[in-house]
Amino acid sequence: MKTRITEMLGIEKPIVQAAMGWIARAPLASAFSNAGGMGIIETSSGELEIIRGEILKMRELTDKPFGVNVAQAFVRDPDIVRFIIDQGIRFVTTSAGDPQRYTATLKEAGLTVFHVVPSLSGALRAVEAGVDGLIVEGGEGGGFKNPKDVASMVLVPQVCEAVDVPVVAAGGIMDGKTMAAAFALGAEGVLMGTRILSSAESPVHQNWKDAIIGADSSDTVFLNRRGPGPALRALRTERTERLQAEGTENIFGEFADTKTVYFEGDLEAGIALTGQVAGRIKSVRPVAEILAETMDEFEVAVQRLSGFAGG
């Protein structure tokens, strides 16, 4: 399969892995790249010396393309761009901030840059900054969000109609059906977050994976819509239901002991970022199976739609 995304990134399948803090490291990202997609290493944890080691591990675990994400709201090291360039990275996704901040410097060093956007205005600003592509993320996705959230069904075609750069659709994507829908809306690739969070290679505790598998599509909450700080979508728990009802003056402080949530399975110890698509995930599967099945289902969905057109 060839799209501008596969050609630009040198990958077999136009599927990108979400850059989840503490989670998107070498074991998960290499599995994704080896399966033909674009594996991404996170930096939002701020643990750059550990990240340096993860990048080295990536090169031991895969000879396929991979990238690094820079979540600007979490950058602690002012030299993070130099850090990424020095590691020999060729593809970067930037998010949670102004695309004007790093794009020019990264592109001058020869890197390909995609920026994550939650709105049309954000997309236009990123294109003006010179990005090579966009990751357009609807409000149904997990993680940090624009308080004025727009669903992927509306946002993706709105952006695709307004820009010439290739678009990766994110938010609600987990299989071939949703990938085909994204392509019908104008995207040339998709990003998976919650589906990969619950994969066999994901390092998070089984309690979180089980909560995703047992969830309905209404079992997430949209927090901090009125600020201060960003909004976010997370798994519904007693803690997050309280935050939804009462609000908070410091949403970042409410994450508390993140590693306890992620790796020890105490989902009340902080906030477990999760998308609405959890309601459709019914099993823990290896990444390679998820991506292969997605491509097979995509082809079936496209053929089915072609049959309607032919009729």
Rank of each mutant, 00 (worst) to 15 (best):
K2E: 13
I5K: 06
M8S: 05
M8T: 09
L9H: 01
G10T: 03
I11T: 00
P14G: 04
Q17F: 03
M20W: 02
A24K: 09
A26Q: 00
S33F: 05
G37A: 01
I40A: 01
E42I: 00
T43A: 01
S44E: 10
G46E: 02
L48C: 03
E49N: 14
E49R: 13
I50C: 12
R52D: 14
E54W: 01
I55R: 01
I55V: 15
M58D: 05
K64M: 09
V68G: 11
A71C: 12
A71N: 07
A71F: 13
F74W: 13
V75D: 04
R76P: 00
D79C: 09
V81A: 13
I89G: 03
R90H: 12
R90N: 13
F91A: 11
V92M: 04
S95H: 07
A96R: 13
Q100S: 12
T105H: 14
A109D: 00
G110D: 03
P118D: 14
S119R: 10
R125H: 12
A126M: 08
E128W: 06
G133P: 04
G133R: 00
I135S: 03
I135T: 11
V136P: 10
F144N: 13
K145L: 15
N146T: 08
N146Y: 08
N146Q: 11
P147D: 08
K148N: 14
K148M: 12
A151I: 14
L155R: 05
Q158E: 15
C160Y: 01
D164F: 04
V168N: 05
V168C: 07
A169N: 10
A169I: 07
A170L: 11
G172W: 05
I173W: 13
I173Q: 13
M174V: 09
T178R: 09
M179F: 12
M179W: 10
A182Y: 02
F183D: 06
A184I: 10
G186K: 02
G189V: 07
G189C: 09
V190K: 05
V190F: 03
M192R: 00
M192N: 06
R195L: 10
L197P: 02
D210C: 06
I212D: 02
S217W: 10
T220C: 03
T220Q: 02
F222H: 10
R225Y: 10
R226K: 15
A231V: 04
L232H: 07
E241K: 15
E246M: 11
F252H: 11
A256K: 13
A256P: 05
D257N: 14
D257V: 00
E264V: 02
G265D: 05
I271V: 15
G275Q: 03
G279F: 03
G279I: 09
K282G: 14
V287A: 09
E289Y: 03
E289S: 15
L291K: 06
E293H: 11
M295K: 08
A301H: 10
